[in-house]
C-alpha cells in the first residue's frame, strides 16, 4: 500500500492537473472502471437511479476533455479557468483490508470566466487503488455544499 505522503500528494496533484488544464494527464489518473460523481442530494445513495450533477465514467470524461479542445465548443470561446483550494487531505482508510484507500478533503473551487467568478465549496472523497505501485482513482465523489441550489453553468471539474 502507498504511504500517507503518497496518498496525500496524489490528491494535491490531481487538483493541480485540473487547474493547470493538463486534462489528458488528469484522465490517466482514473482507473478503467472509475466514476467521477457529483451527487445532487446530501446522502445520495445511487448515481444510477437518482439524478446527479455528474456521474461520469471514463468515456464521458473523455467526451468532456476532448470537447474542451474543440474550437466549436462555443460556451468556452471565452474560456473558463478554475482553482481548487484544498484543506489538508485526511486519510479515512489506508485500504489495508480492501486495497482501496479513502481520503477526505474539504475544498473551495472557483470557476472564472472574464468578469464572472463562481465560488463553490464542499468535501471531496477520493477512493484510490494501488496497482503495481501506481495509484489510480476508483471513485472521486464531490459533495458540493450547494448541491440543491439553482446552479449556473458549471463547465470545468470541481
Amino acid at each position: 500500500m502507498a504511504s500517507d505522503a503518497e496518498l496525500i500528494g496524489f490528491v494535491y496533484r490531481e487538483a493541480r492537473l485540473i487547474d493547470e488544464k493538463r486534462l489528458d494527464e488528469w484522465y490517466e489518473l482514473f482507473a478503467e472502471d472509475a466514476r467521477y460523481w457529483i451527487p445532487l442530494t446530501r446522502g445520495q445513495k445511487s448515481g444510477l437511479t437518482e439524478n446527479s450533477l455528474m456521474f461520469e465514467d471514463k468515456l464521458l470524461l473523455k467526451v468532456r476533455i476532448e470537447r474542451l479542445k474543440n474550437p466549436h465548443a462555443y460556451s468556452q470561446s471565452q474560456p473558463s479557468f478554475c482553482q481548487h483550494v484544498l484543506e489538508a487531505p485526511g486519510i479515512e482508510d489506508r485500504g489495508a483490508a480492501t486495497g482501496i484507500a479513502i481520503l477526505r478533503t474539504p475544498f473551495l473551487y472557483l470557476e472564472s470566466r472574464k468578469d464572472r467568478q463562481q465560488v463553490f465549496a464542499g468535501v471531496a472523497w477520493h477512493h484510490l487503488r494501488a496497482v503495481r505501485g501506481r495509484l489510480s482513482i476508483v471513485l472521486k465523489k464531490v459533495e458540493l455544499l450547494n448541491c440543491d441550489a439553482a446552479l449556473p453553468s458549471v463547465e470545468l471539474f470541481p
Binding site: 456521474f55 468532456r64 462555443y74 470561446s77 463547465e155
Partner: peptide
C-alpha cells in the same frame, strides 16, 4: 436518469452550448 443528467444538468455539455 442518464439522459436527464447528460442533457439537462447545469454541468451538461449540451446545456452549456444552448445557454451560451
Amino acid at each position: 436518469i442518464m439522459y436527464n443528467r447528460l442533457i439537462n444538468a447545469p454541468t451538461s455539455v449540451v446545456g452549456h452550448d444552448d445557454l451560451h
